[in-house]
Structure formats: C-alpha cells, structure tokens
C-alpha cells in the first residue's frame, strides 16, 4: 500500500462547523431577545435562559442514557430552546415551557436520530404542542405598557381592519401584544440581514415566503396586506424557522417552491380561519413536503439521463 490512502469524498472541507453556524444564528436572535426584554420586561430573559438550558439538558440526558457521543457543543439545542421561548408569551409558566422543550428535543429531534435527521422543525413542533395543550396560557398575550391606542388591547392581527399606517412605527418596533420574540419586526429583520451577510442562510426562503404572503393576502382580500406582514409570527417564522437547514429543501428552486407554499398556506389560514397558528402550521405542512420538493427539483448531473 506504500502508505497511500484514498478516502472517499468530500476531499475539501470548509472550516465552517455546525457550532459556528449555530453561534451565528444565536447572535442573529440576540437583537430580538433584547427587544423583547425592553418591551415585555426582564422575565423574557428568564424564559429564554430556562428554555435553552432545558433543551441542552434534554439532549445531554438522552445521549447519556443512550450512551451516544455528546453533541451538545454544536449549540443546535440552544437555538431550538431560544426559538421555543420566542414563541411563547412573556407570561408563560416555566414548567409548561419546559414541556415544550422536552417534546421538541426528545420526540422530534432525538427519537429520529438527532440533528440532521429530524423531518420537521423541533422548535415548531414544541410550539404547536404547547399551543394545542395550553391554549389559554399560550394566547395570554402581555400587552406592553408603552402601547398606544388600538394596539394597547389586542394583538395587531386580530384588529387588522382598524389599523392604519400611523400605527406602522409601533408594529415595526413591536410595541404591541404577542408572543415574546415575534413582535419586534425591526430586530428580526436585523438578525435576518446578519444571517444573509454571514452567508448562514440564503435570502430565497424569507423573501419568497414574505412576498407570497403579501401577494396571496392581497388576492384573498385580506385587510391591510402590507401592514399584516409586520404582525403575528411571520417575520420570526420566515427568517428563523422556515430556513432551518434540515427541514428546508436544498436546491434553490426547491427553496422558492417551499417559500411560496408557506406563504400561500399562511395567507389562507390567516384570512379564512381565525386560528392563531397560521405561520407554524404552514411551515410544519411544508416541512412534510420537503423530501418531495427535493426529489422534484434535483438538478440533473452533467451528461446524465433523466430517470423515467
């Protein structure tokens, strides 16, 4: 053998690790976290910390029990924990939040084989389980004291018809009721721009998602289609949840289809149903279609023959 070994591909490896990517995502989430602490008070920091710690602890416990090598240091559990915390109102009891973390890590992530093997977004399932189990606590939105006029009593999506462009600054800054991480659209967009600049995500999914939500809201005759983009969980979902590597298509064409599908479903659920889960249900549904989208948009290898 003369000491010469040929390993299988890939032969060129980038210096980027899962840990570095996840760290970038955490940095991108920080503006929204700080904004929520300013808007809803310091309890949001407690919820975020507890949720991240619970996710890491669940993953560590699972791997300890299963005698698997620990993957806690890749920080993906921290991101999941933060995203679940972002999806609950600031008044959420801590034990209920921890149940959401356990569902996300144990059932959705680790039972299917850990990071990279989950077929739906763990944070999204955690949120949905909490939403269906503790509906009262999950919709017990804290209304910030600084909110003015129309926005001081309800979430903007519920009263979209009464809002006008003079409410736009409050919507952008997030001074209104909602779950703790979704309200400040400005901070979320800032985080999204950071992710795009750092090349962690491609802007295809967020732009096609938000653009198609606008288009279909307008087509379906929704009230204030432009303003409604800055209300509810759309920004959080489009920038941080729909772009999850594992549960989104890996071809550019697929990403476009995925984003448009999410936008269509979100607009439809927002306008034709009064459920508060438009963004989460549409992302979960599209997550399930990802394998098919991947298969349909797979590029043909150079000189290859298309399969019949």
């Amino acid at each position: 053998m003369n000491g010469l070994f040929v390993s299988s591909s890939p032969h060129i490896r980038s210096a980027r690790t899962t840990q570095k990517i996840m760290l970038d995502v955490i940095i991108a989430l920080l503006p929204a976290l700080i904004a929520s602490a300013v808007i809803f008070g310091p309890r949001t920091l407690l919820l975020a910390g507890v949720s991240a710690a619970a996710c890491v602890a669940c993953e560590a416990l699972w791997e300890k029990l299963r005698k698997q090598p620990s993957t806690v240091s890749d920080l993906s559990a921290v991101v999941t924990g933060l995203l679940i915390a972002f999806n609950v109102p600031a008044s959420m009891p801590v034990w209920e939040l921890i149940i959401g973390d356990m569902v996300a890590i144990f059932i959705v992530k680790m039972l299917f084989g850990g990071l990279g093997c989950n077929f739906i977004n763990p944070a999204m399932v955690g949120r949905t389980v909490l939403f269906l189990s503790f509906t009262a606590d999950m919709t017990n939105y804290v209304i910030p004291e600084k909110a003015v006029d129309a926005l001081s009593s309800a979430t903007p999506l519920a009263i979209m018809g009464e809002l006008g462009w003079n409410d736009f600054p409050e919507l952008l800054l997030g001074i209104h009721g909602g779950v703790m991480g979704e309200t400040c659209a400005l901070a979320l967009i800032l985080g999204g721009v950071y992710l795009v600049i750092r090349r962690v995500i491609k802007p295809i999914i967020p732009i096609s998602y938000i653009g198609s939500t606008l288009l279909f809201s307008w087509l379906f005759g929704g009230e204030q289609p432009v303003l409604s983009l800055f209300a509810g969980g759309l920004m959080l979902g489009a920038i941080f949840m729909a772009t999850d590597y594992v549960t989104s298509p890996y071809t550019n064409k697929g990403k476009l289809i995925f984003g448009i599908g999410c936008g269509l479903l979100t607009a439809a659920i927002r306008i034709f149903s009064n459920s508060a889960g438009g963004v989460s249900f549409s992302i979960l549904l599209m997550n399930l279609l990802v394998p098919y989208i991947n298969g349909l948009t797979m590029p043909k290898p150079l000189g290859g023959v298309s399969e019949k």
Binding site: I99, I107, V129, L132, S133, F134, T135
Partner: peptide
C-alpha cells in the same frame, strides 16, 4: 396541569 394535546388525534398517534 393537563396536556390537552394527548386527548386529541396527534396525541393518540404519539
């Protein structure tokens, strides 16, 4: 202290 989702269909599948 109940998990409402367990009585619903998804909980049945779980």
């Amino acid at each position: 202290y109940q998990l409402g989702i367990v009585t619903q269909t998804p909980g049945g599948f779980f």
